[in-house]
Design a protein around this nucleic acid. Structure first.
Length: 875
RNA sequence: GCCGGGAUGGCGAAACUGGCAGACGCAGCGGACUUAAAAUCCGCAGGACCGAAAGGUCUGUGGGGGUUCAAGUCCCCCUCCCGGCACCA
């Protein structure tokens, strides 16, 4: 994504076409496949007909089909990953058109984001100009590749016609309490004077643009969207998404991280400070609370400051723990660091038995999960056990393995740490003897009744922080008034427009870098009258996370120029849910969870009826080269423009489908494109040669009954139709679809003498040609349009019906059967396809080679698999 | 550590429900066409061995066991590669 360099495509006109055309009389059309000439011709034709791929309105009598590919960030140029993604979607869209569907196949631009600002700083180009220029380049690339989009639905998220609806949604969210403001920690680079995304913090904890500047954690007021309100529904909805890859659903489940447990308040023993006298812990195993021999607080837990306030030595140690944690988090291996801790020399009281429990601070306790404090039960938790061993804390066993039928004996000491849930509680007062599950329920109820706790559910999923201290994003439509407080911009004043004249370089005043978004330095933008009281007020200067843009763009596609509302519910009701969404698995979590969240909010607002955005999701594999992801630093990037210039768009996109199944990684090999190009040349030659009109075979000797050659061709044609149709309906293994077309082509090409001799009816030849062109149409649009026209067809190829499979014609008359003796092939025989088992068995046993192999052996068993093989087991 | 995906010729891969391993393509070799080359067309091609040849024998889907008349495919154990998550209390 963060691809700031690179200008648009630079496709040189590569024409060998002139030479072909120049010497041509009427009859001598180019006899060689010339992709550049063909593709140029059809590009021009398609350009003259902008409504070609336009979806019909909901009144259409056709069945709707919405195929969507993830929209690109306009970095400047498409890469091979895009080509693959869009080639898959385009093949599907074209197939669906040929199936007679009303297809919606839109494209747009995820056009806000930091690279545009970087470009502004580096090249003095305004972000808007840079972005629109890139969009123009990439759109030209897409057109050159021949993708069939309904461009009347195009949108760019950086334009006010789009982002005003982000703002509108934000106001609605705010009204419903789904948008709120709170303090939160952010990555802050003091040199850039802005917040960084986690991905922009280098492994060494420094800024990506200032490699020697450590990133700081700052507390800032941020806007959040309440995704956690939908946590349970987001989780449960995953079960309904049968058309999504299990992998993605698992990742989302883990991300949401639902965990049932109990909150328990421990009271501080002794004097309390400003942070209060209660330490709340979250545990999934409250049944082990009688085994709690310490409390462990996260180093940044608010109470820690109180507890160590009078002890500078302790303070230093706690700061070390914080540093350790922060560093490990930045490097990404928190979980690997060695457990450290320090005792605060203070105590809390276990509310269940009144026991004094020492309070420690430990580096393995995380502030942002649960309550940031845990009860430590060394006997029954691996981490607590490791920690207690290290610091010599008490280890008290309070659950025991359950034994079938047996009386439990107190001497049955389990191996520690012992964590089995199917156990019995002991040494726990009135709860002793209960199964763990039961104890958890009873103890949680008791805690609630006594007012020191309750059963609860926590999530790993956090509310979505959307504030960004950046320019190139959607302004958050809020105003801060000294008298009225936070005041939303009235709906009628939307959109809040991004100002054009902005200084991006951080300001340095008296040696200190000024903070805040570049917007905060635009007085015309900041200074505003309060909508409530009319007095002077300030605008919010943060912008929205770009994931907001991509959370609902696919709804806007249904009517992107609508200016009275974000979408028309009836139109959306017609098109949704998306029938097929296609994109990279790297968006499995963020984008796809946010989109699901947004859909549910919209549904609750009454805007849409569906609860999930997409019925089916397909995640394609990466394009790699030499076993590694393509990257500039490795120098293994293959440019689509180069490939198109050399082999044409058809070959380039078709290769991305042929080289491996679309759900797997694709190892790029230039020579492979050449193979496809050769194949298309063969098709071109075969279809243009021997066209029925050219061949003056008059009466055919085989008018009604086809000879073996003709039957063979007919049979293979229908087998191919079935293979390809099945692939579109099922696994999408286009690599085998294309292989099937190659096989048919090879067979057809090998039959030229049969055709010349009149052994194949001309109508069959014509049917094979037509079918070949039709079945190739989803993969190679330019060539197939050209050939379709050459075959004398005038109707639109995309409206031509897909070839029909006829099982009777695909049926084999004879089949070859392998004969095995003890699993090893000894012979092969040809039998009628419908031969009975007994008959095949006779023939097999009568075969000379088989007899030889059976000589002197005793036949134990003869197994016949119809149409496939015979296996004779001998002793 | 946990959860996915994967390992098949020189290379990308195919074999969808257990049934002839290697379809299709790339690279390679041989031949035709050509003054020559390119392009194109035809043919060969997992490996080892036997044979002048036709043909034959053995072996082979990361490794080891198992189930089965039959295993790339099913079961158990192990190795390596890729992706995701990770002191989640």
């Amino acid at each position: 994504m963060a691809d700031s360099k690179s200008e648009g495509p630079n496709t040189k006109p590569q024409s060998s076409a002139q030479t072909e055309v120049a010497n041509g009389g009427v009859a001598s059309r180019a006899d060689r496949y010339d992709p550049q000439a063909i593709e140029q011709k059809w590009s021009e034709r398609w350009a003259q007909n902008p409504d070609l791929y336009r979806a019909e309105p909901p009144t259409s009598s056709r069945k709707k089909y919405y195929v969507l590919e993830m929209l690109p960030y306009p970095s400047g140029a498409l890469h091979m990953g895009h080509v693959r993604n869009y080639a898959i979607g385009d093949a599907l869209a074209r197939y669906m058109w040929m199936q007679g569907h009303n297809v919606l196949h839109p494209m747009g631009w995820d056009a806000f984001g930091l690279p545009a600002e970087n470009a502004a700083i580096q090249n003095q180009t305004p972000p808007r100009q840079w972005t629109l220029h890139n969009i123009a380049s990439m759109k030209a690339q897409m057109k050159r590749l021949g993708f069939a989009y309904d461009w009347s639905k195009e949108l760019a998220t950086c334009l006010p016609e789009y982002y005003r609806w982000n703002q509108w949604f934000f106001l609605k969210f705010f009204e419903q309490g789904l948008a709120y403001r709170k303090k939160s920690k952010v990555n802050w680079c003091p040199e850039c004077a802005t917040v960084l995304a986690n991905e922009q913090v280098l492994p060494n904890g420094c800024c990506w643009r200032h490699e020697n500047t450590p990133v700081e954690q700052r507390e800032l007021e941020q806007w959040f969207l309440r995704t956690t309100k939908y946590a349970d529904e987001l989780l449960q909805g995953l079960d309904t998404l049968q058309g999504w890859p299990e992998k993605v659903r698992t990742m989302q489940r883990n991300w949401i991280g639902r965990s049932e447990g109990t909150l328990v308040d421990f009271k501080l023993d002794g004097a309390a400070g400003p942070a209060g006298d209660t330490i709340s812990v979250f545990t999934t195993r409250v049944d082990t609370i009688y085994g709690a021999t310490s409390l462990q607080l996260a180093p940044e837990h608010p109470l820690v400051a109180d507890l160590i306030a009078n002890d500078p030595g302790l303070l230093a140690k706690v700061e070390d723990l914080m540093a350790e944690q922060r560093k490990a988090k930045e490097v990404g291996d928190i979980g690997a660091i060695e457990k450290h801790g320090v005792s605060t020399e203070r105590y809390a009281l276990n509310p269940f038995n009144g026991e004094q429990v020492p309070i420690w601070v430990a580096n393995y306790v995380l502030l942002d999960y649960g309550t940031g404090a845990i009860m430590s039960v060394p006997a029954h938790d691996e981490r607590d056990y490791e920690f207690a061993k290290k610091y010599g804390l008490d280890i008290r066993v309070v659950i025991l393995p359950r034994r079938d039928g047996d009386e439990r004996r107190e001497t049955d000491e389990p191996v520690l740490p012992f964590t089995e849930m199917d156990s019995l509680v002991m040494n726990s007062g009135e709860y002793s003897g209960l199964p763990c599950q039961e104890a958890i329920v009873k103890m949680s109820k008791f805690a609630e009744a006594q007012g020191f706790g309750k059963a609860t559910v926590t999530y790993r999923l956090k509310d979505w922080g959307i504030s960004r201290q950046r320019y190139w994003g959607t302004p958050i439509p809020m105003i801060y008034c000294p008298d009225c407080g936070i005041v939303p911009v009235p709906e009628k004043d939307l959109p809040v427009l991004l100002p054009e004249k902005v200084q991006f370089m951080p300001l340095v005043i008296a040696g200190v870098v000024a903070g805040g978004s570049p917007l905060s330095r635009v007085p015309e933008f900041v200074n505003v009258n309060c909508p409530k009281c009319g007095g002077p007020a300030r605008r919010e200067t943060d912008t929205m996370d770009t994931f907001v843009d991509s959370s609902w763009y696919f709804y806007r596609y249904t009517d992107p120029s609508l200016d009275s509302k974000p979408l028309d519910s009836d139109t959306v009701g017609y098109w949704f849910p998306i029938d097929q969404y296609i994109g990279g698995v790297e968006h499995a979590i963020l984008h796809l969870i946010y989109s699901r969240f947004w859909t549910k909010v919209m549904r609750d607002m009454g805007l849409v009826k569906n609860s999930e955005p997409a019925d089916r999701l397909f995640t394609q594999g990466m394009v790699i080269k030499g076993g590694a992801k393509m990257s500039k630093s490795l120098g293994n990037v293959v440019s689509p423009d180069d490939m198109v210039a050399r082999y044409g768009a058809d070959s380039t996109r078709m290769y991305t489908l042929f080289a491996s199944p679309p759900d797997r990684d694709l190892d790029w090999q230039d020579a492979g494109v050449e193979g496809i190009s050769r194949f298309l040349s063969r098709v071109y030659r075969l279809v243009t040669e021997n066209t029925p009109t050219q061949n003056n075979q008059p009466e055919l000797p085989v008018a009604n009954k086809r000879g073996p050659a003709a039957r063979n061709l007919q049979r293979e044609l229908h087998k191919t139709i079935k293979r390809i149709s099945d692939d579109f309906k099922g696994r999408w293994h286009f690599n085998t679809s294309i292989a099937a077309l190659m096989e048919l082509t090879n067979l057809f090409s090998g039959m030229s003498s049969d055709i010349a001799d009149g052994n194949v009816p001309m109508e069959d030849v014509a049917e094979v040609k037509r079918s070949l062109v039709l079945m190739l149409a989803p993969f190679a649009p330019y060539l197939t349009h050209e050939l379709w026209e050459m075959l004398g067809e005038t109707a639109d190829l995309l409206r031509a019906p897909w070839p029909q499979y006829d099982a009777a014609l695909a049926k084999e008359e004879e089949v070859e059967i392998a004969i095995q003796v003890n699993g090893k092939i000894r012979s092969r025989i040809v039998v009628p396809a419908d031969a009975e088992e007994a008959q095949v068995r006779e023939l097999a046993l009568a075969d000379d080679k088989v007899k030889a192999a059976l000589a002197g052996k005793e036949v134990v068993k003869v197994l016949v698999v119809k149409g496939r093989l015979v296996n004779i087991a001998v002793k």
